[in-house]
Nucleic acid binder design. Structure first.
Lengths: 191, 191, 191, 191
DNA sequence: AATGAATGAGCATTCATTCAT
DNA sequence: GATGAATGAATGCTCATTCAT
């Protein structure tokens, strides 16, 4: 009987890939390097992923799912919308800062031609819970009635760009700036 | 006397490069294709640019400068801050939408390892006029006192992400949504 | 288990390289041609040699070693010095004539900038046995007491140049000329 | 009326070419570099030489002629053969040592495929005076009766190889070694 | 399944030569 | 004649992918 695929290898490959993209960007990503970093042979990669493109697509979805799950980790259905929203925003801000490479990867590839349309569709589905949160609040008249995807784009775009600023200047947000950043976001959607 | 370097060739090369990156992304950018698109020989590219990397760096600065100039084109020193700000925001929104590929190029490369630190420094200098606009308004107590780079990141990140949404869904913003988008931004910084 | 590196490939590459240098010289040596001649893919060359330069350096040492081994093949420790010397000289003359391209390759590259200093050092070591032969004879007062490297240069330079003459005129040495050539050499060092 | 070709440019080009070959070898010789070193435009080279190959061929003959002239500079028809021979040998040894790059160039290219057969023929003609010197001495029964081209090859090959040794070890021949080197050569041809 | 040697298309860059000025 | 920008064929080397073991 043939050996079974070793499920522990996939995360190893993801980690290796990310680590290399972080170091030198996608342009310099070589499959042989991924294999070496993941401590396996080149050929082994092709047992788990059809090719480089599939690896990138799967990694993208894996990370996007992971990040969105993390955002909801502290969610509590008893919370008011404001508290829910602040928790989500804080999670997004904090995770982006802490796991910037992963976030940058997600963002850089989101609109890139390296992703298949299938991946893009799946990616949109993952965002649905965030949209629903906004829609519900709009129905309850708690925030402005602006199409939810537009509103979500505004919020996430604004927040990630601020995170980029801190990463890029190698500085860290003070509690005051953290609070101000949230204020801007909240002001932009509140009634 | 020999021919002089033909200064009209540089914009031709920029246009060709952009057009190709737009079609297929940087990963697939081949110098031979740039040359063909610009209707010159491969070797000619290397008279005007040391190598592919320099071409990308110079193109980045060229576009960034062009875009920021365009943003200030309608500026009028007699305008109130609100009018000034709305003009700038409108220009940013409109240009991003109309010249999305250029904007995406600027954004995708801004933090990429393909750009030299020298290019990054020069790039920051180009943004200074935008920061000054905010700082002056803060000194006149017209908007929130939040560090200008943070505020600017918030504004531009939010706006570009909304533009991406329209591009990605192949839709166009209605006047109403345009106005709502501005409102969110304005609300986020107003006193 | 994967295929092991195939040790038979290295001599194949050496032979192919030599054969091409023989035909058209180093200047026209293209790696793609080496690969075709050795009946393998271009990339395979780079598994066995880091680059063209390393291939040339390794080939040089391989040939130098081979040639010097061949010179000693008929050596017999019971021979008198004169017999030993004549055997060595004859071998050098004969091999140079028969395998002129290899000898020319060795000679042309010996002082060229294509060889690393490491290769040059190793090359010198290979010559040591020849020097020792002369030194011993000098100690036994059988030949002139002239620094061995000078004497060896004299002998080998003279002999190879004669070989070049025959190659260049597409003629062959008569037994008489062979004997005369040896006489000149022997006369130059005898007591 | 058109300007005349400037005859002073040819030696300038020769010097520039030699100087570059000396630095980095023929493989790295680029016409643009020759032009820069000779302080003229690339195109100008092509006014004086049809192409790179012609430049190399002409340079070869120029140098070979120069070197052989220099060898005969001290010649005196009243000298005995031994004195004549010693003067010639000394000149060859000294010039080779002092102008090693030029000598190496001559030697390296003498049998190379870069030289046309026409150049090779002309080159042989330049050597005739040296052959004649030997033939005359043989007719007068002053040296061994061995075919002159063989004898000349022996002499020049031996001598140049000794020079190479000194260049290669960055050492200089003592008067004693100089004398010993001559002795070996003289012994090899004397009656 | 795992390995890593082998493959060969692909691409950035160079450089001899031409030719418009 | 002199210039040097323009040309584009040529080439060393890379790297995604395959496949024999």
């Amino acid at each position: 009987m043939a050996r079974l695929k070793d499920p522990s290898k996939i995360p190893l490959i993801y980690e290796a890939t990310l680590s290399l993209i972080l170091k030198s960007g996608y342009t310099d990503l070589r499959m042989a390097d991924v294999a070496r970093e993941a401590e396996m042979a080149t050929g082994t990669l092709y047992i788990y992923f059809k090719n480089k493109e599939e690896l990138i697509n799967k990694l993208f979805l894996y990370l996007k799912e992971e990040k969105i799950s993390q955002m909801f980790e502290n969610a509590d259905s008893d919370d008011s919308f404001f508290i829910s929203f602040k928790k989500l925003w804080t999670a997004y801000f904090t995770i982006s800062l802490k796991e910037y490479p992963k976030m940058l990867f997600i963002e850089q590839y989101a609109y890139s031609s390296l992703l298949s349309s299938e991946t893009k569709t799946k990616s949109d589905e993952l965002v649905a819970p965030l949209l629903n949160t906004l829609v519900k609040a709009q129905e309850e008249d708690l925030i402005l009635k602006i199409p939810a995807p537009i509103m979500l784009s505004h919020i996430m775009g604004a927040t990630l760009e601020i995170v980029k600023y801190f990463i890029n200047t190698s500085t860290h947000p003070s509690p005051e700036i953290f609070e101000q950043s949230f204020q801007m976001t909240w002001n932009s959607i509140r009634k």
